[in-house]
Each structure stands twice: as structure tokens, then as C-alpha cells.
Amino acid sequence: MDVILEVKNISKSYEDITVFENLSLTVKKGEVVVIVGPSGCGKSTFLRCINALESIQDGEILLDGEAIDASSKELPRIREKIGMVFQSYDLFPHLTILQNLMLAPVKVKKTPKAEAEKEALSLLDRVGLLSKKDNFPRQLSGGQKQRVAIVRALMMHPEILLLDEITAALDPEMVREVLDVVLSLAKEGRTMVIVTHEMQFARAVADRMVFIDGGKIVEEGSAQEFFDDPKTERLRQFLNSFSYD
């Protein structure tokens, strides 16, 4: 399989606080990588570094062999290829659902309106929200907004999707509807890097699991190894904190 994303030895710090050092990650086309770890371990920051929402102090990030550089003029063009969905509902509140979906394709990619609308409607239908197309974001539940946010990212035809704790702010009964969408994307072979606290979901969706703690990758491996046969004591402790038996 071809490599899409290569993160090489990146380091991130805020003044005198080091978030992580020398982190590396390679993601192949069609692969779903799930990153887990305790709160504050740097996993969300790591994800945000990938599309340069955070600057890095060291190392490099390559997408299709092209460097992602926060100071580059080319950054918007590279970001088109990286879809990102955030924890908080980040839809544009002044636009309807359909307008939210069409804005970036029409303005950035110059997709003809009719074409963008057709695609938006078919994707909305797929996530069960076609009837909401003319509603405003405030009229939707959290789970519905997150499904729209995923669709909005898909509208740009990204080569890779970054999902940053997209269910962390949702009521429990809405988590499922969002994760089902992500599972179906995984089935169709989307490349994704997912940060989550939902372990069962992680197990179901991941081709590869990565455990970050204290700014380092402590362990990584296939979902089965990772959950059934953790090699490190630290990961065992972490996984135990999710079970009640």
C-alpha cells in the first residue's frame, strides 16, 4: 500500500512545556489509525499539528511527499486534502446545512454549484439528514451537527480524514449515530486518523492502534494485539481504567 502521510520526528512545545518530542507516524492509503491515551497526553495536539493548526518546533510532516509547513503560502491548498472534524460543533452558524456543505467546494475548489449541491444532497441522504438541508445548525442536535461536520469535510474529497474526539461533547445516546457514519467510511476504505476515548469503537474501526502517553508513543499494533495482549504495563493500566470487572 502507498504511504499517504508521513510524520517524522516532530516535536511540539509551548515555551518551556514540552507537549511531545520525536513523534513519528506513517499512515498508508486506506488505513485507519486510532490514537488513544490519557487526557493531556498530546494526542489532540498531535492531530492538530498534522494540518498545521499548531506549529511544530522540530521534524517534518509529509502528505503525499509534500511538506506541510504552517508558514507556507501553499498551506490552504494542502489542507484541502486533509479533512478535519473537531470535538466542538463547528458548523458555520449563519449558513444553512446545505450552504455549510457547499461553501468550501464552491469557493475554494470552484466546483459548479449544481454539482456541489447534488453531491451534498446525496451525502446528506447517506447520513440520514436530507430533510435538514435547509435548517440552520442551531436547529440540529449535537449528533446531527457532527454528522454534518463529517459530510462537510468529505465534500472537499480529502485524501485523509482527521477526527479529533468527535463524540466527546455528545450525549451518550448520540454517540452511536456519529460513530456508525465513521464505521461506514472505514468500510469503504477511507484513510483516517482518529483520536477517541471510545475503546469499543476504536477496536471495531482500527487497522492500527497507537497509544500515546507523556508525549511519546508507548505502544502500537493491530487492534487485536493492542487490546488482547498489551505489551507494556502502562497500556495495560490504561486499558484497565475502562473496564469494571
Partner: peptide, 22 residues
């Protein structure tokens, strides 16, 4: 919210376009 700037940016919108439409 900062996330409005960030989500526009992650859709590939350059800063001027983000201000204009978002």
C-alpha cells in the same frame, strides 16, 4: 469562537476568504 477560523482553515479556505464568508 477560534474553532470557526480553524474549521474554515481546515476546509482549505485562505484567511481572506474565511473573513469574507465566515
Amino acid at each position: 469562537p477560534v474553532i470557526q477560523y480553524e474549521s474554515a482553515a481546515s476546509l482549505g479556505m485562505p484567511p481572506l476568504m474565511t473573513y469574507r464568508y465566515v
